[in-house]
Amino acid sequence: MHALIVIAHPDQASLTHSIARHLAEGVAQPEEGHSFEIADLSAEGFAPAFTVTDLAVHRRDVPIPVDIATEQARIDRADALVLVFPVHWWSMPAQLKGWVDRVFSNGWAYDEGPDIKSVKRLRHLNVHLVGLGGASASTYERRGYRAAMKTQIDHGIFDYCGARVVTSELLLGSEPADVALHLEAARTIGRDLFKARAEQVTEAA
């Protein structure tokens, strides 16, 4: 099975990149035979701004542009989509949100329109969310930030398209002891990435 790991961080030496690499190592256990691709949106120069062309795509007035079709094909090749991101203002970074805005388009991620029956088109996709935050767990819970993020991202984006959010993890703290735990957690997430898929297949059988 194949995982697409998407990150949006300009610093290759960041904890976000380290988490993505360790998660990929967990996926690529030789005895399992799984594969991965890392989509580094910052290094690849993905343009996140939602333009008039994207609006026309949403309205189904023009074909999907090449850059978006390329990203959609990456997801179509994957059995699991993994987003690894630093928490910016209690959400994902602008470049990653722009990737979602543009790539998860009408006619591909979902169907809707005046004369179109609403359809969730990504029911086959398993999603894993790994956010990195500096605030404490008590702050997230006390202020309701964690619940708000799940409402916005897990449900507002992925459930709307029918995708199943299997992992929704917040790795909090940046002290050396925290980092060591985060890297091990990333490896574990990677190793377990396709267990849910295997369980789904078993249940279907």
Rank of each mutant, 00 (worst) to 15 (best):
A39T: 03
A39P: 00
A39R: 13
D40I: 13
L41K: 05
L41D: 01
S42D: 15
A43R: 15
A43Y: 08
E44R: 13
G45P: 07
A47H: 09
A47V: 06
A47S: 10
A47F: 05
P48F: 03
P48G: 04
A49S: 12
A49R: 12
A49T: 08
F50E: 01
T51R: 04
V52N: 02
T53S: 02
A56N: 13
V57L: 09
V57M: 05
H58P: 00
R59F: 02
R60K: 07
D61C: 02
D61K: 06
D61N: 03
D61V: 00
V62P: 03
P63I: 08
P63H: 11
I64C: 09
I64S: 00
V66I: 07
V66R: 15
V66P: 07
D67H: 14
D67V: 10
I68C: 08
A69R: 11
A69L: 14
T70Y: 12
T70P: 07
T70K: 06
Q72A: 08
Q72N: 10
Q72H: 11
A73Q: 14
R74Q: 11
R74E: 04
I75W: 00
I75N: 01
D76S: 13
D76P: 03
D76E: 15
A78W: 06
A80Q: 14
L81C: 08
V82I: 14
L83D: 14
L83N: 11
L83R: 13
L83C: 13
V84P: 04
F85C: 06
F85L: 08
P86N: 09
P86F: 14
P86H: 13
V87W: 04
V87L: 11
V87P: 09
H88Y: 15
W89K: 12
W90V: 10
W90P: 02
W90H: 12
W90M: 09
W90S: 05
W90R: 10
W90D: 06
S91W: 12
S91F: 10
M92W: 02
A94M: 10
A94Q: 13
A94S: 15
Q95L: 14
Q95V: 08
K97M: 12
K97R: 14
K97T: 05
G98R: 03
G98E: 03
G98P: 10
W99D: 03
W99Y: 10
V100R: 12
D101Q: 06
R102C: 00
R102N: 04
V103T: 15
V103I: 13
V103M: 02
V103F: 03
F104I: 06
F104T: 01
F104K: 01
F104G: 03
N106E: 05
N106I: 01
G107S: 08
G107F: 04
W108L: 01
A109K: 11
Y110R: 13
Y110C: 07
Y110I: 03
E112I: 10
E112S: 13
G113L: 08
P114C: 05
P114Q: 14
D115W: 10
D115F: 13
I116N: 02
I116R: 15
K117N: 10
K117W: 06
K117S: 13
S118I: 05
S118A: 11
S118W: 08
R121V: 11
L122D: 02
H124C: 07
H124P: 01
H124K: 04
L125W: 01
L125G: 07
L125S: 08
N126A: 13
N126D: 15
N126R: 08
N126M: 08
V127I: 12
H128E: 07
H128T: 05
L129R: 06
V130C: 10
V130M: 03
V130E: 04
V130P: 04
G131N: 09
